[in-house]
């Protein structure tokens, strides 16, 4: 579905698009591709859904969105798709994932992320979410983020060519 050149292209894009007049041509130069081929390949990767979005990646904290809560719910398996569909409708929900439960120590399967300007706002939004989605009887925990030790764009290394480290 995707080839080595696509992987290299994605890897280069992790560093960000240059602020020059012809940024895709610049990427092409590094991979021996024409500008046109870079654009065609990126369009295809977007169409395939492998690139979920291409654009400005904002720094939430700097923009004043300092409160970030990961909310985890223990939702019955039979209802999870329906509830996830409902949860995803809210504009303040940035992510909604299904992950495996890990026994009694971690019985949660549905994750959603809420970014907000402060804790109170996030908790208000969560209350709204819980009541609108009928989740008041569902066990949940709210995990606000505190210190960030490391953060970078996801780096997908293309396999190195022979002789290249």
């Amino acid at each position: 579905m995707i080839d080595f050149i696509d992987r290299q292209l994605i890897e280069l894009l992790q560093d960000g698009l240059a602020t020059v007049s012809r940024p895709y041509a610049l990427i092409g130069q590094q991979l021996n591709l024409s500008e046109d081929e870079v654009i065609v390949r990126l369009s295809r990767l977007k169409e395939l859904g492998l690139i979920k979005r291409l654009g400005v990646i904002v720094n939430h904290r700097k923009l004043g969105y300092c409160a970030n809560a990961m909310v985890v719910f223990d939702v019955p398996d039979t209802l999870v798709e329906q509830i996830a569909g409902h949860v995803s409708q809210f504009s303040f929900v940035n992510l909604c994932y299904l992950r495996p439960r890990r026994g009694e120590q971690w019985p949660y399967n549905l994750y959603c992320m809420i970014h907000g300007k402060n804790r109170e706002k996030v908790l208000q939004q969560l209350d709204h979410l819980i009541s609108s989605c009928g989740l008041s009887s569902v066990n949940h925990e709210v995990l606000f983020s505190r210190k960030c030790f490391k953060q970078r764009g996801a780096i997908y290394k293309a396999d190195s060519e022979p002789g290249k480290v």
Partner: peptide, 20 residues
Amino acid sequence: LADEHFISRIGSIIVPNHIG
């Protein structure tokens, strides 16, 4: 915007588990 760290980059968000 980049110098002031309002944006981290202009780039792509990749779907997890499709590439690696």
